[in-house]
Amino acid sequence: MNAEPQSQPSLTGVDRLIHEPSRSVILAVLSAVKSADFLYLQRETGLTKGNLTVHLSKLEAAGFITIEKTYRGKLPLTLCSLTEQGKLAFEEYRQQLRKFVNGGNGNQ
């Protein structure tokens, strides 16, 4: 009598490393630009220097971002940019998120 239960999309399969709010914001910012520095990411995420360093290290260790210490004029810069692997992982994460929000059809 009862209709078969439809397979509901779930968030169990998402990458936990990206699913953390601050890290997903970091990846979102880096996916929109070529690179961003530590100060900009700190302002955007609202994290303390220590917390941001930990998050960036985790993303770097996973191969999602690269961190380069450089200078712009006399200003020391810690530049972060998304790797190809990070780009793919973030795109997949967002697709999963959209699927979940839209109930499985994946459309926006």
Partner: peptide, 19 residues
């Protein structure tokens, strides 16, 4: 760009846009 390096990047950070 020179002025921006001194006024903007130090205050609110640096972002390199995509070309």
């Amino acid at each position: 760009l020179w002025y921006r390096e001194r006024s903007t990047y130090g205050r609110t950070g640096f972002v390199e846009p995509k070309k």
